[in-house]
Write a protein that binds this DNA or RNA. Structure first.
Length: 938
RNA sequence: GGGCGAUUAGCUCAGUUGGUUAGAGCGCCUGCUUUACACGCAGGAUGUCGGGGGUUCGAGUCCCUCAUCGCCCACCA
C-alpha cells in the first residue's frame, strides 16, 4: 500500500468526486424490473423547484439514502425514484416577484404564455441545482427515471385521474367561499395560510330597526363588509331581542332592509351586544349561517381586492380605502358608537404575505365524504388504510393527526386561478340537447360531460378538445384554471412508475416500501396519496410512512431564509464533507418531533461567511477516525494471507471483537428495520471508536509486530474493517468506499470463517448477516472485560499519582482463582497497554510496601512506588475509597432492611442486592486492611 | 379552546417492559507529539432528572396537577 495515498487526514472532497462518478458508471443505482431480486422502493418527496435544498431536505434524503443503500446491500432491487415538484403557487409567486422587481412588470404584462415560459426557465435552472445537490450528498437515486410533476408522464396521469374522478362523480364544480389571495388572484388552500396576531380595532355600529326608534348594536372588526350584510343575527332565546325577531333593520349606508334572524350556532349571547351582522359572502361563519337561513349572498369583491358594483358608492375602491370611508361615513351619520382596540389574528397567504379574503367563487372540489348510497368515500377509505395496518405510520403518534384530519371529510378545493400548473381538462360547452354531445363525441370513451349548474355543459376530456369540436352549435372554452399542486403530488407514487400504462415498473415497484417525510404534510400530501392511490390503483401507495423530525435552530425556532438562521447543506458539505453532513443528521434523527441545531457563523475557505453548527464537528471527526483505523490496518496488513479461520480458533481478544461485531450488526439491522437511525448510527460509532479502535487495535499492536499470531490478527482486522465498511456505508458512503477500495488492494480476498473475493464496490457488497450465536463468546467477553477494568484501574492510579507516561513501573494485580486465570492470558497485553515493564498477577502480595492501591470488586491493583508517594496522601485516598464504598452499602442495606422490598421484589433483584452487599463488604474489608498497613507504616 | 411533543450535566441529546452508584458527544480541567489518528490518546470534574402531589417494597421511567417552551388544528361579531 502506497502510504502517500493515505494522508493522515481524510480528504472528503476528493473521495466524493471520485466515487460518485464511479457508482454512476457502474450503474449501481439503476433498478431493473426484470431482475429476480425482490423490490424495495422509495419515491422521493419531490422538492419544490422554488429554490435550493435546505437542511430539512438533507435530513430526509439522508434517511432515504440510508434505507435504499442498506436494502440494496441486503439483496433488494432498490429503486429510489427522484424528481421535483412544479409547486404551482409557490413557484409562480417567486417568478412573479422577480418579474416585478427586475422588470417592474406584472404577469398580465407578459401574458399567460410569456409567464409560463419564464417559469419553465426558472424550473430548468433550479431543477438542475436541486438534483446536483442530491448528487453532492451522495444520494443513490435512479437518475434515469427522474420525473417532474409537470412532465408528460405525470401530465398523463393527472388527466386520466381527473377524467375518472369526473366520470365517477367524485369531482364537482361549485360556488363556495374560498380563501382568496388578492395579490396572486387565486384561491389558496387552508394549509397555505398562516395566521398572524395583529392589533386591530373593534367598531360598534348602530343599525336602526326599520319603522322604529330602536337600534341594534353590532360589533365588527371588519366594518367594510357591512355593505354586504344580508341579516343581523341574535340568539333565538335572548330575551332582549325576542320582539325583534322577524322584523328588519335598515342597513346603514346601503339603505337596505335586512332581516333580524335567530341563530343559536352563530351567536353567543354572552359576547358583546349579542347581535352579529351576517355577511355570507365574506366570512366563513356567516356563509354557513347564510346557507342555514337561505340568505342572499352579496359578493362585494373583485378578484383584485377592489370593491365591485355591489358596493354602491364604494365600487372601484380598494378594500382599505372602503374601510376608511365606511367608518368616516358612519361616524358622520352618527351611527358609529365606539371604536376599541382589539387583538385579532388575520389570515395571511403563505406565498404573497397579503391578507386573505373569504371570497365566493366557482371552484372544483374533490368529494371526500361518503356516498349517498352509503359507500365509504375517499376519506373513509384512506382512514381504513391506516387503521387496518395496510399503511403503517412511524412514529405511531402521527397516525392521529392523519385520522383526525381525514375525519373532517372536508371536500378538497383543487382549482387554482394560476397559470403555472396542470390545466383543468374541462371545456365549457354551449347550451344544447345532450344528443348533440353524443353526436359530436360519438365513439370516444375519453370524453364525458355533465350539465353545468349555470347552464350549458361541463365537458371533461383526457385529450385536448378543439374549440370548434362541436361545430356550429357553439364554441368550447377550456377552463382557464389549473389544479392544486397537491393534485399531481398525490399521484406521485404511481404516476412516476408510468401509471395509467401497465408498465413493468408499476407491476414490480408499486406499492412502494417507505415514504419518508415531515409531519407538516401528513394531511396535505400523505393522506391524498393514499386517496388517489386507492382510487387509481386499488391499493395503498406505500406500506410505511416515516415521519422525521423538524430541524430548528438552537432556540427552537424554525430555520428560514428570511430569519437568517438557516443552514445550507452545501455549506456543510464544503466545510466537512457529505459524509459528515449525513452522519450528523443520521445521529440526530431520533423519534422526537423537533431537532435542535445551535447555529453559528463561520467562514468558508473562499472567505464567504456562512451558518453552521458545532454539531457537525462530530461528522468530521468520526470519518477521520475510521479513516485512520483503516490506515493502521493497511499499514499492518503486509503479507496478508486469506486463510480460513473460525472465530473459536482465534485469540481471546479476536473472539471478543468478532462477537461484538456480530452483535452490533444484528442490532443495527433491527434498528434500521424500525427506522431508528440515530440508534443505529450511535451503535456503529461506539463499536468503531470505543471497542475496535480504543481496545482491539491496541490489544493487537504487539502481535502485529512479531508474533506467530500476526496472520490471525490480520485476518480479524481485515474482516472487521470489511464488515464495518458495509455497516457504515449507508450512512457514510464515501469514506467507506474509499477504504473499501484501499482494502481491496492489500486484501482482495477476505472474510471469516472462509475468505472470499470482495465486491468491486461496497455499494453492492453484502450486508452482514452474522448469526450472533455463532460468534458470541461469553468467555472472551468476560476476560476482555477483566482486562479493561484492570487496565483502567492502573491508568487511573498512574494519572492520579502523576507518574509520567514514560516511567516504567511493575504493577501487581492481586486476584483470586478464576479471575487470575483469566487475567494470566493477558499479562503481556496488560503490561503493554499500561506502559508497565512487568505485570505481576498473583494471589497474594506484600501490603506493607510503599504503593498506591485500588480495591476492585474481585482484585486489588497495586502500583509499587517506592519513594515516589506520600504515605499520608495514600492513606487519605484509601479513606476516600472507603467513603465511596460505604455510601452504596448504606443504600443496599436500607433496601435489604425494608421488609416490603425483601417480601415483594422479585427474588433475582433481592439476590442481586445481597450479592452486592457481600461484594461491598469484601471491598471495604480489603480497604480497611490496607489502611491499617498504611497507617502503621507512616 | 383542542391535540401532539419537549423539559435529564454549561450545550445537544440517549435512557428499552419501573430494579445496582443516571449515560454519550461537544465544551471544561490535568497530563501526553506513546510509530493509525492532536479531527488524537489517557485521566478527571460536573445532575434536587422543570415544580408539587400520588401509586409502588422501589419512580428519570407510571398516574394527577401546575409551570415554561415548541409545533399542529380550530375559533375570535
Amino acid at each position: 500500500m502506497n502510504l502517500a495515498e493515505l494522508p493522515k487526514q481524510y480528504d472528503p472532497h476528493s473521495a466524493q468526486s471520485r466515487w460518485y462518478s464511479f457508482w454512476l458508471e457502474k450503474g449501481y443505482f439503476h433498478a431493473d424490473p426484470s431482475s429476480e431480486k425482490p423490490p424495495y422502493t422509495i419515491v422521493i418527496p419531490p422538492p419544490n423547484v422554488t429554490g435550493a435544498l435546505h437542511l430539512g431536505h438533507a435530513l430526509n434524503n439522508t434517511i432515504q439514502d440510508i434505507l435504499i443503500r442498506w436494502r440494496r446491500m441486503q439483496g433488494f432491487d432498490s429503486l429510489w425514484m427522484p424528481g421535483t415538484d412544479h409547486a404551482g403557487i409557490a413557484t409562480q409567486a417567486v417568478v412573479e416577484r422577480r418579474l416585478r422587481e427586475e422588470e417592474k412588470k406584472t404577469r398580465h404584462d407578459v401574458g399567460r404564455e410569456g409567464l409560463v415560459e419564464r417559469i419553465w426557465a426558472w424550473k430548468d435552472e433550479y431543477e438542475q441545482r436541486i438534483l446536483g445537490q442530491l448528487r453532492q450528498m451522495g444520494c443513490s437515486c435512479d437518475w434515469d427515471r427522474t420525473r417532474f410533476t409537470l412532465d408528460p408522464v405525470c401530465a398523463r396521469a393527472v388527466r386520466t385521474t381527473f377524467f375518472r374522478l369526473f366520470r365517477a362523480d367524485k369531482i364537482y364544480r361549485g360556488k363556495r367561499l374560498v380563501n382568496w389571495d388578492t395579490q396572486l388572484r387565486t384561491a389558496v388552500a387552508d394549509d397555505e395560510i398562516e395566521s398572524q396576531q395583529t392589533a386591530g380595532q373593534l367598531w360598534t355600529i348602530r343599525y336602526p330597526v326599520t319603522g322604529s326608534m330602536e337600534f341594534l348594536l353590532v360589533a365588527t372588526t371588519r366594518p367594510e363588509t357591512m355593505l354586504g350584510d344580508t341579516a343581523v343575527a341574535v340568539h333565538p332565546s335572548d330575551p332582549r331581542y325576542q320582539h325583534l325577531l322577524g322584523m328588519t333593520v335598515t342597513l346603514p349606508l346601503m339603505d337596505r332592509p335586512i332581516p333580524v334572524i335567530g341563530d343559536a350556532i352563530l351567536v353567543n349571547p354572552e359576547f358583546g351586544t349579542g347581535c352579529v351582522k351576517v355577511t355570507p359572502a365574506h366570512d366563513p361563519n356567516d356563509y354557513a349561517t347564510g346557507l342555514r337561513h337561505n340568505l342572499p349572498m352579496i359578493n362585494l369583491l373583485n378578484p383584485d381586492g377592489t370593491y365591485n358594483e355591489n358596493a354602491g358608492a364604494y365600487a372601484g375602491l380598494p378594500l382599505k380605502e372602503v374601510r376608511k370611508r365606511v367608518v368616516a361615513d358612519l361616524e358622520a351619520q352618527g351611527l358609529l358608537v365606539k371604536v376599541e382596540p382589539h387583538m385579532l389574528t388575520i389570515p395571511l397567504s403563505d406565498r404573497s404575505k397579503t391578507a386573505i379574503e373569504p371570497y365566493l367563487s366557482d371552484q372544483w372540489f374533490v368529494r371526500m365524504g361518503d356516498g349517498e348510497d352509503g359507500q365509504p368515500g375517499f376519506a373513509q377509505s384512506a382512514m381504513a388504510a391506516v387503521t387496518s395496518g395496510q399503511v403503517n405510520i412511524t412514529p405511531e403518534r402521527y397516525a392521529k393527526s392523519y385520522l383526525d384530519w381525514l375525519g373532517e371529510k372536508r371536500d378538497w378545493c383543487v382549482s387554482r386561478q394560476l397559470w403555472w400548473g396542470h390545466r383543468i381538462p374541462i371545456w365549457y360547452g354551449p347550451e344544447c340537447e345532450e344528443a348533440v354531445l353524443e353526436m359530436a363525441f360519438s365513439g370516444r370513451d375519453d370524453v364525458a360531460w355533465r350539465r353545468a349548474e349555470t347552464g350549458g355543459w361541463l365537458i371533461c376530456s383526457e385529450s385536448d378538445l378543439a374549440t370548434d369540436a362541436m361545430g356550429e352549435v357553439g364554441e368550447l372554452v377550456q377552463d382557464p384554471d389549473v389544479l392544486d399542486t397537491w393534485f399531481s403530488s398525490a399521484l406521485w407514487p404511481h404516476s412516476t412508475l408510468g401509471w395509467p400504462e401497465p408498465t413493468a415498473e408499476l407491476a414490480k415497484y408499486y406499492p412502494t416500501s417507505v415514504l419518508s417525510t415531515a409531519r407538516d404534510i401528513i394531511t396535505l400530501w400523505v393522506a391524498r396519496m393514499v386517496i388517489f392511490g386507492q382510487f387509481n390503483t386499488g391499493g395503498v401507495p406505500f406500506k410505511n410512512v416515516f415521519i422525521h423530525p423538524v430541524i430548528q435552530d438552537g432556540n427552537g425556532k424554525r430555520m428560514s431564509k428570511t430569519a437568517g438562521n438557516g443552514i445550507d447543506p452545501v455549506d456543510i458539505i464544503d466545510l466537512y464533507g457529505a459524509d459528515a453532513l449525513r452522519y450528523t443528521l443520521a445521529l440526530s434523527a431520533t423519534e422526537t418531533q423537533d431537532l435542535r441545531m445551535p447555529v453559528e457563523k463561520t467562514r468558508l475557505p473562499d472567505g464567504r461567511e456562512v451558518n453552521t453548527s458545532e454539531r457537525f464537528e462530530q461528522g468530521r471527526t468520526f470519518p477521520n477516525k475510521l479513516w485512520n483505523a483503516a490506515r493502521f490496518a493497511l499499514m499492518n496488513l503486509e503479507g496478508f494471507d486469506p486463510a480460513p479461520l473460525r472465530p473459536e480458533e482465534a485469540e481471546i481478544e479476536d473472539r471478543w471483537i468478532l462477537g461484538l461485531l456480530a452483535q452490533t450488526a444484528t442490532e443495527v439491522t433491527s434498528d434500521l428495520e424500525a427506522f431508528r437511525f440515530a440508534d443505529a448510527t450511535r451503535r456503529l460509532r461506539d463499536f468503531t471508536w470505543n471497542d475496535f479502535c480504543d481496545w482491539y487495535l491496541e490489544f493487537v499492536k504487539a502481535r502485529l509486530r512479531d508474533d506467530p499470531s500476526r496472520p490471525v490478527a490480520q485476518r480479524v482486522i481485515a474482516t472487521v474493517l470489511d464488515r464495518l465498511c458495509t455497516l457504515l456505508h449507508p450512512v457514510m458512503p464515501f469514506v467507506t468506499e474509499q477504504i473499501w477500495q484501499a482494502l481491496g488492494e492489500v486484501a482482495p480476498s477476505r472474510g471469516m470463517p472462509v475468505p472470499g473475493p470482495a465486491a468491486e464496490s461496497v455499494c453492492i457488497a453484502n450486508w452482514p448477516e452474522l448469526r450472533v450465536q455463532d460468534w458470541l463468546d461469553e468467555e472472551a467477553e468476560a476476560t476482555v472485560g477483566q482486562w479493561r477494568e484492570k487496565i483502567s484501574a492502573i491508568r487511573t492510579l498512574r494519572s492520579e499519582r502523576n507518574i509520567p507516561p514514560s516511567a516504567k513501573i511493575s504493577p501487581v494485580i492481586v486476584a483470586g482463582g478464576e479471575v487470575a486465570v483469566r487475567l494470566l492470558r493477558g499479562e503481556s497485553i496488560l503490561a503493554s497497554m499500561t506502559n508497565s515493564s512487568i505485570m505481576t498477577i498473583t494471589e497474594a502480595a506484600d501490603r506493607s510496601a510503599e504503593s498506591a492501591t485500588t480495591v476492585l470488586a474481585d482484585a486489588e491493583v497495586i502500583l509499587p512506588l517506592e519513594g515516589l508517594i506520600d504515605r499520608k496522601e495514600e492513606a487519605a485516598k484509601l479513606k476516600k475509597q472507603l467513603a465511596d464504598l460505604e455510601k452504596p452499602l448504606a443504600g443496599v442495606r436500607a433496601k435489604l432492611a425494608n421488609e416490603g422490598f425483601v417480601a415483594r421484589a422479585p427474588t433475582d433483584v433481592v439476590e442481586a442486592q445481597k450479592a452486592r452487599e457481600c461484594e461491598l463488604l469484601a471491598q471495604i474489608a480489603a480497604v480497611l486492611t490496607l489502611l491499617e498497613a498504611a497507617e502503621r507504616g507512616s
